[in-house]
Design a protein around this nucleic acid. Sequence first.
DNA 1: CCAGGATTCAAACGTACGTTTCAATCACTC
DNA 2: GAGTGATTGAAACGTACGTTTGAATCCTGG
Lengths: 209, 209
Amino acid sequence: MSQLETKDRILDAAENLFSDKGFSATSLRSITTLAGANLAAVNYHFGSKDALIQAVFRRILTPLNNDRLQRLDALEARVQEPSVDEVLTAFLTPVATLWSESKRGPVLVRLFAKTFAEPSTNIRDLVFSEFEGIAARYIPALARAVPHLSRREVMTRLHFLIGSMTHTVTNWDMLAGAPGADELIEQMVTYGAAGFRAPAALTTSKGTP
Amino acid sequence: MSQLETKDRILDAAENLFSDKGFSATSLRSITTLAGANLAAVNYHFGSKDALIQAVFRRILTPLNNDRLQRLDALEARVQEPSVDEVLTAFLTPVATLWSESKRGPVLVRLFAKTFAEPSTNIRDLVFSEFEGIAARYIPALARAVPHLSRREVMTRLHFLIGSMTHTVTNWDMLAGAPGADELIEQMVTYGAAGFRAPAALTTSKGTP
DNA sequence: CCAGGATTCAAACGTACGTTTCAATCACTC
DNA sequence: GAGTGATTGAAACGTACGTTTGAATCCTGG
């Protein structure tokens, strides 16, 4: 049926199954069966189950984060001092786009969201190293947009935003009506930007011991 | 060493290991070893691994949600029209209290947070059924505090808040400085309340087809 | 067309898992 | 203090897992 290479069919199948059942609960046998490949193909093409997991993540994260960086570049080239709303939109849109672009979107997004709750050090390390470049660009941009916040509070609120995003896309079906990607972006930017613009919560940033 | 019953020692050990490594990645053998109990004790006292997982969750969720309901009751008895900040504080404080009350706190909170990313239908169903009573009380309270939002947007923003909370407590160590529970509550209520007070993002709530 | 590396295949490896079994031991009642 | 039900113990059950093996097959360049 599919004309894809075995390697890609395995990645596709792994993506879907990992996204559904988690990593340790998904067997290589179920992956290769769904992919129409032999069990040994995983270890032949990737080396181990762990390496397969990392390959699955890399295939998702690299273009996603590139998209994020590109959008921030374009934004900063267009306007001199981007607003919080604009920065958050640049940050969130790639995920929402990924989500809505095809049948593969929801799978990817759920898988991506699952990472933060997974205990595996390998996966966490991979995602964090991939995210470092994003943080290095977005945190200064956010700090410029909300100059009343300390760098620490900017990071904390970015964590809040990421949490909202991952939880929402992971538990999409719980939301009544299951709105589309545009609607989600709109609501999350509205909510998150207002949160970022809220006054500093920490008085310690003014010099309390 | 411990004078606790075997049943409780197993629950304690399971709590810690589930919180660290996830459910399917934690074996009954590692649980009973840590608990100083025999392997067969799990099936004797709980019936199966799945039933053990549910027992672990029930032991956490029941008092947590009772605390939430109690705080909302006390709040509504004290002031006639509670503000968003007050409702969110009532909602978030039990988790933060649980977090900071002892060494067990972080374990419980991480475990609780892990639920939303876990694929197991059993766990999700349990958590949702436990959460229904909370939603039935908190969503109307929130809707009264932010009357400019449709019921649907209130629910969406509550999802955002829950996401922020679960993500933050799950990835606590990623936050620079690792602030205490009081500080977390303060920041999250500031952020979330501003988000709730933000204008409605959906124009569809006014009657668009 | 045929050599030779790349890929696929069926089968087996050893290990770890959840669960079951049943005898041994404990705790409590009469 | 003997008897009885609750609990614990050591061991084994069957199954499923990730990985490895080595022969069979495919594909491509000369």
